[in-house]
């Protein structure tokens, strides 16, 4: 006797639920445009305002500490006054090394681009070798572990002796500094490819080249990009130091030159630019990595 009663209850309950659902969806679907913009503005503000406040406070403290007569370092107001020309005209070129900051930065970036590209190619290739072959790992890994602890500048005299020229030496220093994290992370990524993926490749009968392109590189991509990201940071560190010693056009030597002519304000401005460029480089590689490894990183 109870059975039909429960059935009817279920039947009446279901349409009610269905009718209720679209109503909820409708209200969710149309929040006013202004509200959306306000929300975006709020979220941006939450991210942007705190660092701005901190920067303003730090600048204020700096100004207060350094504005006294006889202080060793210039206050921000003086830095700005001294370097106004450099800030507002980064593109001048008076010949020799007397160029705008744009040219110095671009010379440094070109060296980094060349050295880093070489180290990315060689690093990934060596990393794949070490990750794939147990014997290559046993033979090469101890070597890598020792070599990677050598500070960038320690390579400079040796490379100057070998290349007898500043330009290739600087590029070599970048190469040798940034290659280790790329090798090591790539090798770890290759070694961590799940056995499942290898099984899939085996069942489908991918040849070694297809396995490399279709399984190995995408599977190891998150690790490879971790290595590439550490590598770009290290190469930017190395180039500044190497350029100080090598001379010529480049942001590193610009800093050294400013120190030799006691233009402390210029040093501060250059440091600011070095930081910004390093940050952008790091974000750039991270961004590329995010696009390339979409999908992979989620698992």
């Amino acid at each position: 006797m109870n059975m039909p009663a429960t059935k009817i209850e279920v039947e009446t309950a279901t349409p009610a639920a269905i009718a209720a659902a679209p109503v909820v969806a409708m209200t969710l679907k149309r929040p006013p445009r202004a509200e959306t913009y306000a929300r975006i503005a709020r979220e941006t503000a939450v991210r942007v305002i705190p660092p701005l406040v901190v920067i303003a406070l730090l600048t204020l403290v700096w100004e207060l500490v350094c504005r006294r007569a006889g202080s060793a370092l210039p206050p921000p107001s003086k830095v700005f006054k001294d370097t106004k020309e450099l800030i507002f005209d980064p593109f001048f070129d008076h010949g020799g090394i007397d160029k705008g900051l744009f040219w110095h930065l671009s010379a440094s970036l070109q060296r980094v681009a060349l050295g880093y590209s070489l180290s990315a190619i060689a690093g990934i290739a060596l990393g794949v070798l070490v990750g794939q072959s147990v014997w290559a790992m046993r033979g090469l890994d101890p070597l890598f572990q020792v070599l990677r602890t050598i500070p960038p500048l320690a390579w400079l005299p040796l490379s100057l002796a070998a290349f007898r020229d500043g330009q290739p030496s600087a590029i070599f220093v970048i190469f040798i500094t940034s290659i280790w994290p790329i090798i090591i992370n790539t090798a770890v990524g290759i070694r961590n490819i799940p056995q499942d993926y290898r099984n899939v490749a085996a069942v489908v009968q991918l040849n070694p080249l297809e396995f490399f392109g279709k399984i190995m590189i995408p599977a190891a991509a998150p690790y490879i990009f971790t290595g590439l990201r550490i590598g770009i940071g290290l190469s930017w560190l190395a180039i500044i130091a190497a350029e100080m010693l090598i001379g010529g056009v480049g942001i590193g030597f610009f800093i050294w030159d400013a120190w030799n002519s006691s233009h402390i304000s210029e040093i501060i401005l250059a440091l600011f630019y070095v930081g910004i460029v390093g940050f952008v480089l790091d974000r750039l590689i991270a961004g590329v990595g995010k696009i390339v490894t979409r999908g992979t990183a989620q698992n």
Binding site: P194, D196, Y197, N199, V200, A202, V203, V204, Q205, K214, I215, P218, A219, A221, T293, R294, G295, T296, Q298, N299
Partner: peptide, 20 residues
Amino acid sequence: NSPGPDRAVVFQNHSLLPWL
């Protein structure tokens, strides 16, 4: 005695390639 598509396997944990 070697793997091949004539004996295709459905793996326990699906083993789909996540980037495809």
